[in-house]
Design a protein around this nucleic acid. Structure first.
Lengths: 197, 197
DNA sequence: CCTACCGATCGGTAGG
DNA sequence: CCTACCGATCGGTAGG
């Protein structure tokens, strides 16, 4: 077997570095305002090198979103594994989602707005991935209706929840007085209507 | 008194046309992806002409957001004038906000994400305007606590509400089965926790 | 993954 | 508000 110039593992690492740099910059400055040169520099490469790993800037955006979302799904599954109580599950789903938003490893939800730039096929693929991500949410909301904690779990409820959490990136500061746990508590209280008792 | 080449009223109209074209394009394609040439064309002008009305593309963005927000405030005031019942007021505030989002005349909230591009002074000015816009919301939420309809109206509650409404631009389609009135009803039900009775 | 480079486009301006 | 234009930057590529 012929030796390769670069080890496959090392090559994968470099790809991941480009991906992570792109994710951070897309979130900070937006997709259009980020240049492929910014990304190359942040990954410690020359300006043309990102194109060795990704066909185009759009391909890079698509990968950032889909792979970020896959990481969020993994975090979500780990958070609810073996948890049966619906209210407990809801709380863990909310906390896991806020973790994905603010704990930096996976920030796919922050980039939903940037999918504008992608073609219809890529947008559809991303929309489907987000739908799958929300399946456990809908199941949990349905369970809360079944036990009488909520009156209705029609689909808009899930979307209201998803939206209020995602929008928190515009006002919540992780380094402020409110912890992520407290933020999750607040969000759940909002959903339950803070009914006395 | 010397005659002017162009009437002041006509000149103001042209400025408004540029502003409206820019607002629509910024929302559709995003600030960075919209070129000043796109805006000029949409306003029926040559490529350099928008700069007769606005110093720079950034100035145009700032004006779109601040003037759009002023229009939203006017709509809000008209919606709640003379309405005292807190729940009725809340419902009208929500409906007015959804109207500003989807009924196309004023779309400032959609552009919050684009303020990244502006300098700190402009961002602060816009943030203050959004704070003022939400004052009636906080007052109404406090009144709902006073009458026992809500348990707490700590500031995050207002921000959750603002966020869930704004995020609806990512999923709600005005031409679908759900009317804007039904959407407002759903949002209010979400806030109140759909408590039975 | 780097060097060297290209064609296209962009925000903005001078002068009328 | 138009004409004509500029300097800078950008995504992407050939060839190694």
């Amino acid at each position: 077997m012929p030796r390769r110039k670069t080890e496959p593992a090392a090559e994968a690492n470099r790809r991941t570095e480009v991906l992570r740099a792109a994710a951070r910059l897309f979130v900070e400055k937006g997709f259009e305002a980020t240049t492929t040169r910014d990304i190359a520099e942040a990954a410690g490469m020359r300006s043309g090198s990102p194109f060795y790993h990704f066909r185009s800037k759009l391909d890079l955006l698509k990968a950032v979103i889909l792979e970020g979302l896959a990481a969020s799904e993994a975090r979500q599954q780990a958070a609810i594994a073996g948890v049966d109580d619906p209210l407990d599950r809801l709380h863990r789903l909310v906390r896991a989602h806020l973790g994905s938003l603010f704990e930096h490893d996976t920030n796919a939800p922050l980039l939903i707005g940037e999918t504008r730039a992608l073609d219809a096929a890529a947008r559809r693929q991303i929309a489907e991935a987000f739908d799958r991500y929300q399946i456990p949410w809908q199941q949990t909301l349905d369970a809360l209706v079944a036990q009488g904690t909520l009156t209705s779990a029609a689909p808009p409820l899930r979307l209201w929840l998803f939206g209020m959490l995602n929008w928190s990136t515009h006002w919540y500061r992780p380094d402020g007085a409110m912890t992520l746990d407290a933020l999750a508590d607040s969000a759940v209280a909002m959903l339950l209507g803070q009914a006395p008792g």
